[in-house]
Design a protein around this nucleic acid. Structure first.
Length: 895
RNA sequence: GCGCGGUUAGCUCAGUGGUAGAGCACCACACUGACACUGUGGGGGUCACUGGUUCGAACCCAGUAUCGCGCACCA
């Protein structure tokens, strides 16, 4: 092995190993393997997207799961790919051609789609490369794209099948219309956003009784020309007598029509004036009222949100918001505007285009979801597990109120609907293949919602054909479907997760994944969502360049608890970097002691510290394994961090210097062998989190070839995952808990000794003598470790030590430790320290005494808890007594 | 309106019935042959509030406040 540089330099290391992994095909899944299968499909990012912190969180978790599964001996498939992202991509390309002064209509469908494909080829690979930089261990040989030929075929096959089952139908319905993208949207793509607006009150005259006026409150006065009725609640005593009469609609001024007053249960008596203007063309609820009362529908808007001639000469041709202002002016001019009051209401916005959607009546394709019942049940009954499980409730609620899905989009980029209309008869041809004599048919121009392709992702990516016999012979589907885990954000639980579940049951007859892990949302330090416009979204690639991918992964995982949003702070990445450096240097320290040890660890030569660190490792492994079971990755990282830094580096490595610097070569060798054991376990435990540095050290330390049996291997990624020690192991190495207790008390003594040094302002570099009055016999080895840990010049053991008056001392399990100050004794300082100490101890004693004085506690608490409290009390009392005596002695001596 | 989260040290958060924790920040000391991307020691908390259950509550229950999110046709 070569000597390691002083600080870890991730840049060259990372690219070197990633290339090695690719060359060796470690990430490629073999469906014919005899190992048990483990699979994850990546939530496909937008093909032209860039890696952001959300991707980092999401994909790091997937990578951790995949790498851990490989070490567990599974055949792992992590299937990557990208999504064509219909609206997002089309909008992007439209924007780019607009710079040349062109619209997509100038180009025409075919030429425009060519442009989009060009764009895809140019930008499509970026995010994939970024994932590689992060260390993602995807099987790149299986990369898929939702518009691949095979994949598209799956989409069409599904459409045809559902159409033939009668679950897909076409109809004229109220849909969410995006006036910017000029397409229909699903309910899920509409974000309800609070808007500060006004509630305008205007009055209308009753036609049959001109002296009577009714006042209506509205937020959309521009739609008045589209009103075809006004409605009141039949139970409303104010208006009951007017039902069936008519009012004069004030706009358009040149066409003040008479519209009926209808009664409808839907009207809220409390709201506004209790009178609703009914605009069936521009409001979902109004449309329903219109249907119930057979009202005329007047559509006053163009698809792009401007008003048309039906809005009347004063309003026509305006943008809808301009028209609103103008309508208010007109009402005022006519003299029917009574008042306006500020009002906050929620308005639906297009998720992509960020403009207010319009409810609009149009001809669209809809899907009545298949397998709702089975999909609903599998989560409710726990066949599929959600982490955290509270999302199951959200899922349950949505599934209980499921609405048909509007799947057609008036876009060009996407899967065109496989439906042709006969030019003369109007007959419908729905099939994967076009009809014969295509010249007699016209294909439906619409494409499918992007999610109508991504809902097939778990099996369409694995070569699904829909033919039961063929699929049964497909090893990928057989080995890797259902997939094991899905890792995604809760924001797409309806868009994607729920729909995949239904598709899984409908087309594969089985659920698509067994567990779903929902990540939190990454926010900035102030808790704001990360967004381009705020500029608060750090570029992960820059962070990787600066700190290393492992550091980014570690920092992210350490601050990402299950189920909560993550407040991202670059400090976390810095912490990750520092940790990698610590790991690096701990291995470097081991390496400086010489090469791998030939012999096995000799149980007879284990020191108490050795046994302690083995027990701590055992605990760490158990905790990490538990954390994995619970999908609590931050707990796993915290445990590993604590074990490695606080326990191994701070205590074990320091105390092992006694053995390493000692005169016993056999003990030295044994210590080194033990270090190798600990380090090889540690590196493996860290590997899923820190793949690059652990691989580098694995090879650098010689573990890749020199370790016996299944611990070695060409890559740490295929080394066996550490198991918590079994009984035989514990017995073989004599790992009794009493050793841990002893070592803990030794370290406690050290801590007190160091504290004394601090209290008396003795610089930590100054080597000073300590005196120990032991309460039990300590071996030379123990005394050596104490001396080293205390950084003592020497440690004198004197059973009947007579300390000079005022010598600071602390009592401990192992004896009393004195800090002789030789002429520097400051009695007042020691008094001060003791008084402070007394106060502290007294408080603790009182606390425990109070508890033990409570007969309820003593009688009813479990015996072991009471016993533990008694022990604690006696410990504190001892300290109290010691401090009191010391103080008395000082006071009596009269300084 | 309904539902779901959060409220613990200056900051960000762990902690789910038995001695209040971590990282960062802060103070002091030390560039000691693994590591200054470091080490050692230290200060710092009515666990949002009010009640209840319990021998015992940060933790369980009820309610309040506050912040955030989701769902819902209130114009």
């Amino acid at each position: 092995m070569s000597e390691l540089p002083k600080a870890y330099q991730p840049q060259s290391v990372e690219s070197k190993w990633y290339q090695y992994w690719l060359d060796e095909k470690f990430f490629e899944a073999d469906p014919s393997s005899s190992k048990p299968g483990f699979s994850i499909v990546i939530p496909p990012p937008n093909v032209t997207g860039m890696l952001h912190m959300g991707h980092v969180l999401n994909n790091t978790i997937q990578d951790i799961l995949a790498r851990k599964a490989r070490m567990d001996g599974k055949e792992v498939l992590w299937l990557p790919g990208t999504d064509h992202a219909g609206i997002a991509t089309q909008v992007m390309v439209e924007k780019s051609i607009r710079k040349e002064g062109l619209t997509r209509h100038d180009l025409g469908r075919e030429a425009f789609l060519e442009k989009v494909w060009e764009w895809k080829e140019k930008h499509g690979g970026i995010i994939i490369n970024q994932l590689k930089k992060l260390g993602a261990s995807c099987d790149w040989s299986r990369e898929r794209f939702t518009m691949d030929e095979d994949y598209s075929r799956c989409v069409q096959r599904v459409f045809v099948k559902l159409y033939r089952q009668g679950l897909i139908y076409r109809g004229k319905r109220m849909v969410n219309w995006c006036p910017a993208s000029l397409t229909a949207l699903s309910d899920e793509e509409v974000i309800m956003t609070p808007q500060k607006s006004f509630l305008w009150y205007f009055k209308v005259q009753v036609a049959e009784d001109p002296s009577t006026w009714m006042t209506i409150a509205t937020t959309r006065p521009e739609t008045i020309p589209g009103d075809t009725a006004i409605a009141v609640n039949p139970k409303d005593p104010r208006y009951g007598h007017l039902i069936g009469k008519h009012v004069i609609r004030p706009l358009p001024a040149e066409n003040q029509a008479r519209i009926p007053i209808v009664a409808d249960e839907h009207i809220d008596l409390e709201f506004g004036t209790g009178v609703l203007k009914v605009t069936p063309a521009h409001d979902k609820a109004d449309f329903e009222i219109g249907k119930r009362h057979d009202l005329e529908i007047i559509d006053i808007l163009n698809p792009d949100g401007t008003t048309n001639e039906l809005a009347g000469r004063d309003l026509a041709g305006l943008d809808r918001f301009k028209a609103r202002e103008r309508a208010v002016e007109l009402l005022r001019e006519i003299g029917v505007l009574e008042k306006e009051e500020p009002y906050e209401n929620k308005v639906g916005f297009s998720e992509r285009a960020k403009v207010a959607v319009e409810p609009r009546l149009s001809e669209q394709w809809f899907l009545k979801y298949p397998e709702v019942e089975a999909s609903h049940r599998c989560v409710r009954e726990g066949h599929m597990k959600f982490f955290p499980d509270r999302w199951a409730k959200t899922y349950d609620h949505w599934m209980s109120h499921i609405q048909d899905w509007c799947i057609s989009r008036q876009l060009w980029w996407g899967h065109q609907i496989p439906v042709w209309y006969h030019n003369e008869t109007g007959e419908i041809h729905c099939d994967i293949d076009p009809p014969e004599h295509p010249e007699c048919w016209t294909r439906d121009a619409d494409v499918l919602d992007t999610w109508f392709s991504s809902w097939l992702w778990p099996f369409a990516t694995m070569g699904w054909t829909g033919d039961a016999t063929l699929d049964a012979d497909n090893p990928s589907l057989q080995t890797f479907y259902p997939t094991t885990d899905l890792v995604t954000g809760p924001d797409i639980i309806f868009f994607w997760v729920a729909r995949m579940i239904m598709a899984g049951y409908a087309f594969m007859g089985d659920l698509p994944f067994r567990n779903v892990y929902y990540t939190g949302i990454i926010r900035d330090k102030q808790g704001r969502k990360m967004s381009k416009t705020l500029g608060n979204s750090p570029d992960p690639l820059e962070l990787i360049g600066q700190y290393g991918a492992d550091a980014l992964r570690f920092g992210t995982m350490r601050s990402a608890p299950l189920g909560l949003d993550v407040l991202f702070d670059e400090k976390d990445v810095e912490l990750g970097r520092n940790f990698c450096n610590k790991l690096w240097n701990a291995c470097r320290f081991r390496q400086m002691q010489g090469g791998m040890q030939e012999g096995e660890i000799d149980p007879m030569r284990l020191t108490t510290d050795d046994k302690w660190i083995l027990i701590r490792l055992h605990t760490a492994i158990s905790e990490v394994n538990q954390a994995f079971e619970d999908y609590k990755f931050n707990e796993a990282t915290t445990t590993l961090y604590r074990f490695f830094w606080n326990e191994y580096c701070d205590w074990y490595v320091e105390s092992s210097k006694a053995a390493l610097q000692g005169a016993d070569p056999a003990l030295q060798a044994n210590t080194l062998a033990l270090m190798d054991f600990i380090l090889s376990n540690t590196l493996r435990l860290f590997h899923p989190f820190l793949p690059f540095i652990t691989e580098e050290l694995w090879h650098g330390m010689g573990f890749s070839s020199d370790l016996p049996g299944d611990q070695g291997g060409r890559t740490i990624g295929l080394a066996h995952w550490p198991k918590a020690f079994d009984e035989d192991f514990l017995e073989h190495y004599g790992l009794d808990a009493c050793y841990a207790e002893f070592v803990e008390s030794k370290y406690e003594l050290v801590r007190m000794g160091r504290n004394l040094r601090g209290e008396f302002n003795i610089p930590s570099k100054q080597k000073i003598p300590y005196v120990l009055q032991p309460s039990e016999t300590l071996s030379d080895y123990e005394l050596d470790t104490l001396r080293i840990l205390l950084n003592a010049e020497r440690l004198d053991v004197e059973a009947d030590y007579q300390a000079p008056k005022g010598t600071p001392a602390v009592p401990s399990q192992l004896g009393t430790l004195f800090l002789p100050l030789e002429g520097l004794v400051d009695v007042e300082a020691e008094k001060g320290r003791l008084i402070k100490e007394l106060e502290k101890i007294t408080k603790e004693v009182e606390k425990v005494e109070k508890k033990l004085a409570n007969s309820g506690f003593v009688d009813r608490a479990p015996a072991e808890v009471v016993q533990e409290h008694r022990q604690r009390l006696s410990d504190w009392q001892q300290k109290l007594e010691y401090a009191r005596k010391s103080l008395e002695a000082l006071t009596a001596s009269g300084s």
